[in-house]
């Protein structure tokens, strides 16, 4: 054991990212740009919900979208075609989440001076994106009915960091053992402040409530 040197570090692995995220939020505040981090499992309807929401808001505020995926650009193309707003694709190169640095690199490719709202569609995953602060002003997540009402118990961190939880695919409620009241109860156990909004992105039901929430948040931020 001779010649053993110990360098004490005592530092959280997330510390650098948390700092970068705070800096990014400061920059967004100065520029008057609201960044929403949208998270969910794969297949919960993030892209469809976004298209519906953007189409209700695009005449009121200027919107840009950043689609993050491990690979492909199908989502970015879909958003652009369906809404006409600026939409770019970020590739995480195999990583399961975006961090503040990657988000900032993405924002550098968006026309920030022409946007009031930038929506970041994070990688579909309920674990990792919750751990890395992207620098977003608010966090939103979508839980879809087929996933089950017990998800807030299984993925507590994700639900505890979200300001709004959108429950999608309510049109299929009759076919699933999904208990809406239980789901709300579980969400509020993890996060008493979370706003819960049931919607059906396919038919558009309830989407205006989410759009309204978003519009309010954006005007608060720009005040």
């Amino acid at each position: 054991m001779e010649n053993v040197k110990i360098i004490e570090i005592k530092k959280s692995v997330f510390e650098n990212n948390d700092r970068a995220a705070d800096e990014l939020r400061g920059e967004l505040k100065t520029k008057g740009v609201f960044l929403l981090n949208l998270m969910s499992s794969p297949g919960s309807g993030k892209t469809t919900t976004l298209i519906q929401t953007i189409n209700r808001l695009k005449d009121k505020i200027r919107i840009a979208v950043m689609e993050a995926d491990i690979d492909s650009d199908v989502d970015a193309i879909k958003i652009k075609e369906a809404t006409g707003v600026e939409s770019i694709q970020l590739h995480t190169g195999g990583m399961c989440h975006l961090d503040a640095e990657m988000t900032e690199q993405g924002l550098n490719n968006v026309s920030m001076e022409q946007a009031d709202l930038v929506i970041l569609e994070n990688v579909g995953n309920l674990v990792c994106p919750a751990e890395f602060d992207t620098g977003a002003v608010k966090n939103a997540m979508i839980l879809s009915v087929p996933e089950g009402h017990d998800k807030p118990l299984k993925y507590p961190l994700m639900f505890s960091i979200c300001d709004v939880v959108v429950i999608n695919k309510i049109d299929v409620l009759p076919y699933f053992d999904f208990d809406m009241e239980k789901c709300k109860e579980y969400i509020h156990m993890r996060n008493p402040k979370a706003t819960v909004i049931p919607i059906c992105a396919k038919t558009g039901e309830g989407v205006e409530v989410f759009a309204e929430w978003l519009l309010n948040e954006v005007s608060e931020w720009k005040r």
């Binding site: 053993v4 040197k5 110990i6 005592k10 530092k11 692995v13």
Partner: peptide, 12 residues
Amino acid sequence: NEVEIKELIIEN
């Protein structure tokens, strides 16, 4: 909830 680097050990 910690994910922390405590220390590095260097042996020569």
